[in-house]
Design a protein around this nucleic acid. Structure first.
Lengths: 96, 96
DNA sequence: CAACGCTTGGACGACACAATCAAAAAACTT
DNA sequence: AAGTTTTTTGATTGTGTCGTCCAAGCGTTG
């Protein structure tokens, strides 16, 4: 169960990029990105496309990781999370 | 696409209960509950069991409605939400 | 229309969370 | 080990949200 922050850090280190570079692309302070990578702050959805480009991740992959992290951290303690996810999927599908 | 607030309001009105009564059980001010029902405030997960009892809703049902609302409002604009939900479900299942 | 109960709205303080900045700490390089 | 770059930490300030309180709006009933 690795977090979204660790995920980002792994990707960045694989590319040998400093926080400074990635933070610059995001137009935020390095300290914020540092905190995001250590899960002291939460990334916003607006950051995802820029992160994907900077870290050479597919848009789909980073979004999926982000969604997993948000759901588990916001709703992970609920007893019927699985049912809720299934129902949400159903309403998304029937909405196409 | 009706909201969690409308859902609560419908249930309450079906029982003919005033905000006052339900708010008392939740131990919050009526104005807050009013705002929750009009989606100006967000219910917390701690409120769900009390709401379920007060509005005669099954725990499972109210949780599922809540989950749907939270996911769609927090993540609804993401392109790969469906994939993210499927992946989250998978990791929940494999974690059993 | 006065009185009553229900509901809504806005002002206020409390509190959690976010961003900025500078300095300390850690990690590399030579 | 000194010097340089990268990363973390903490103090400060800013922003948003929550809940309380109270006043006003709305509808119904006497």
């Amino acid at each position: 169960m690795n977090s979204f922050g660790e995920y980002l850090r792994n990707k960045r280190e694989q590319l040998g990029l400093p926080l400074r570079k990635v933070a610059a692309e995001l137009d935020i302070d390095t300290s914020i990105l540092s905190k995001i990578e250590r899960n002291e702050r939460v990334a916003t959805t607006e950051m995802l496309p820029t992160l994907a480009k900077a870290l050479e991740i597919k848009d789909k992959e980073i979004e999926v990781e982000f969604i997993k992290a948000v759901i588990l951290s916001d709703l992970g303690e609920l007893r019927f999370l699985k049912n809720g996810l299934e129902e949400t999927l159903n309403s998304l599908k029937s909405r196409e």
